[in-house]
Amino acid sequence: TRVETATETAWISLVTALHLVLGLSAVLGLLLLRKQFPAHYRRLRHALW
C-alpha cells in the first residue's frame, strides 16, 4: 500500500506540473501573439469573449 501511495503522489505532482507548464505556455503564447500580431490578438479576443 505504501508503494501505491508514493505512485499516487508522483502522479499528482506530475499532473500539477503539467498543468502549470501548460498554463504558463498559454500565457506566454498569448503575450507573444499580442506583441507580434495585435490585429490577430484582438480578433481572437472577440471570438473568445
Rank of each mutant, 00 (worst) to 15 (best):
T1A: 13
T1G: 08
T1M: 14
T1Q: 13
T1S: 12
T1W: 09
T1L: 13
R2G: 10
R2T: 14
R2K: 14
R2Y: 14
R2I: 14
R2W: 14
R2M: 14
R2S: 14
V3Y: 09
V3E: 02
V3G: 02
V3C: 05
V3Q: 06
V3S: 05
V3N: 08
V3R: 04
V3L: 11
V3H: 00
E4F: 11
E4D: 14
E4Q: 15
E4S: 12
E4H: 15
E4A: 13
E4R: 11
E4K: 10
T5G: 05
T5K: 02
T5Y: 01
T5A: 07
T5E: 06
T5N: 09
A6G: 14
A6Q: 11
A6L: 07
A6Y: 07
T7S: 15
T7I: 10
T7D: 00
T7C: 09
T7M: 15
T7F: 12
T7E: 10
T7W: 14
E8Q: 00
E8K: 07
E8V: 04
E8S: 07
E8M: 00
E8H: 07
E8G: 02
E8Y: 01
T9W: 11
T9V: 14
A10L: 06
A10H: 05
A10E: 15
A10P: 06
A10I: 06
W11M: 09
W11Y: 13
W11A: 02
I12H: 05
I12K: 10
I12M: 03
I12C: 01
I12R: 09
I12A: 09
I12Q: 07
I12V: 13
S13C: 15
S13G: 15
S13R: 07
S13M: 14
S13N: 09
S13L: 14
S13W: 12
S13E: 02
S13F: 15
L14G: 01
L14Q: 03
L14F: 06
L14A: 05
L14N: 02
L14M: 15
V15T: 03
V15M: 11
V15F: 09
T16P: 01
T16G: 02
T16Q: 03
T16K: 03
T16D: 07
T16Y: 05
T16S: 11
T16E: 00
T16W: 02
T16H: 03
A17G: 09
A17E: 01
A17M: 11
A17D: 01
A17H: 02
A17T: 08
L18E: 02
L18P: 03
L18N: 04
L18G: 02
L18M: 09
H19G: 15
H19I: 15
H19R: 06
H19P: 00
H19Q: 11
H19M: 08
H19L: 10
L20M: 12
L20T: 10
L20K: 09
L20V: 12
L20C: 13
L20S: 09
L20D: 06
L20I: 13
V21D: 05
V21K: 00
V21W: 00
V21Y: 01
V21I: 11
L22G: 14
L22Q: 02
L22H: 01
L22C: 14
L22V: 15
L22P: 11
L22S: 14
L22R: 07
L22D: 00
L22K: 04
G23Y: 07
G23N: 08
G23C: 15
G23P: 00
G23A: 14
G23D: 03
G23T: 13
G23F: 14
L24V: 10
L24E: 03
L24F: 13
L24Y: 03
L24T: 03
L24A: 05
L24M: 11
L24N: 02
S25P: 05
S25E: 00
S25Q: 03
S25K: 00
S25C: 15
S25D: 05
A26T: 12
A26F: 14
A26W: 11
A26H: 01
A26K: 00
V27C: 11
V27P: 03
V27Y: 04
V27T: 11
L28Q: 08
L28H: 06
L28I: 03
L28T: 02
L28P: 03
L28D: 01
L28K: 06
L28R: 01
L28M: 10
G29S: 12
G29D: 02
G29Y: 05
G29V: 12
G29H: 05
L30I: 12
L30K: 05
L30N: 01
L30W: 02
L30S: 09
L30H: 02
L30G: 13
L31H: 04
L31W: 06
L31E: 05
L31D: 02
L31S: 07
L31T: 08
L31V: 05
L32Y: 11
L32Q: 00
L32E: 10
L32C: 06
L33V: 10
L33M: 12
L33H: 04
L33F: 13
L33D: 01
L33K: 09
R34K: 14
R34Y: 08
R34I: 14
R34A: 12
R34D: 07
R34C: 12
R34S: 08
R34H: 05
K35P: 00
K35M: 09
K35S: 09
K35E: 05
K35F: 04
K35N: 09
K35W: 10
Q36K: 01
Q36H: 07
Q36G: 07
Q36N: 00
Q36A: 07
F37T: 08
F37E: 06
F37Q: 00
F37R: 06
F37P: 02
F37L: 04
F37M: 00
F37W: 07
P38S: 07
P38L: 00
P38R: 03
P38G: 08
P38F: 02
P38W: 03
A39R: 11
A39Y: 12
A39N: 15
H40V: 07
H40S: 09
H40Y: 07
H40Q: 14
H40R: 10
Y41F: 15
Y41S: 12
Y41I: 10
Y41Q: 00
Y41C: 13
Y41D: 05
R42T: 11
R42P: 06
R42F: 09
R42I: 09
R42D: 12
R42W: 09
R43F: 08
R43S: 12
R43H: 07
R43G: 09
R43D: 09
L44S: 04
L44I: 14
L44Q: 05
L44T: 03
L44D: 00
R45L: 07
R45Y: 04
R45D: 06
R45V: 10
R45T: 09
H46A: 09
H46R: 12
H46I: 05
H46W: 00
H46D: 09
H46Q: 06
H46P: 02
H46M: 07
A47W: 11
A47N: 10
A47E: 01
A47C: 12
A47H: 12
A47P: 05
L48W: 06
L48T: 10
L48Y: 04
W49T: 03
W49F: 06
W49E: 04
W49Y: 05
W49H: 07
W49L: 08
W49Q: 09
